[in-house]
């Protein structure tokens, strides 16, 4: 970040004053930090528009937490650490949101009869049959009984639940081995 030693020392002084309750240090801190945060996040993310949004979040977090700022620490490093955390948390949230979207899209098996939908359904059925065929007979029996509500093996309900849980875990494991992962 482009901040010389004098600017850095001034930021340290102003942030310490702001942490102590000196309201007149607010504007200098804001003016010094804002361009630094935007440049830093833009350089990290490579997206200027996103950088401004994350910089806003980071600035709000910095100002909310400034009372806990330890004057023995470097103000710039402390602020940028908060900014990078905000950026990481934004990316994490966005990737979760994307995952949820992809998962729901993947779960929605096409029901119409276009050639693509038919091919997709056939592929999925084939994949499921392969995985079921590779399972141990007891696991296969438990899963088929649970799906079709058919006759259950002669065991107690609790033992069946446990067996079904184990069977699903094994099926997931096999699916992951054959098709990388069962979730996008």
């Amino acid at each position: 970040m482009q901040l010389d030693e004098v600017g850095r020392a001034e930021l340290n002084r102003n942030l310490t004053a702001l942490a102590d309750g000196e309201r007149h240090a607010f504007d200098p801190v804001y003016r010094a930090l804002w361009p630094l945060l935007v440049r830093f996040i833009a350089a990290t993310s490579g997206d200027r528009a996103l950088a401004e949004e994350i910089a806003q979040r980071a600035m709000l977090k910095i100002l909310t937490k400034v009372t806990t700022f330890d004057p023995s620490r470097d103000a710039l490093a402390w602020s940028l650490a908060i900014a990078i955390n905000e950026y990481r948390s934004f990316r994490r949230k966005r990737s979760h949101a994307t995952c949820d979207l992809q998962e729901s899209a993947a779960l929605a098996i096409p029901e119409h009869d276009t050639p693509e939908a038919i091919a997709m359904r056939d592929n999925l059925h084939e994949a499921v049959r392969e995985v079921l065929a590779a399972l141990r007979p007891t696991d296969r029996e438990a899963i088929v009984a649970a799906i079709h509500a058919g006759p259950r093996p002669p065991v107690s309900a609790a033992a069946f639940r446990k067996r079904l849980q184990r069977a699903i875990a094994n099926a997931r494991h096999l699916w992951k081995r054959h098709y990388d992962d069962d979730r996008p």
Binding site: F26, L60, K65
Partner: peptide, 17 residues
């Protein structure tokens, strides 16, 4: 309008602390 939000965040942070 952001600077006003920032000021409020600062005061709320102090109050919470």
């Amino acid at each position: 309008r952001f600077i006003e939000h920032a000021r409020r965040a600062y005061e709320w942070g102090r109050l919470e602390h």
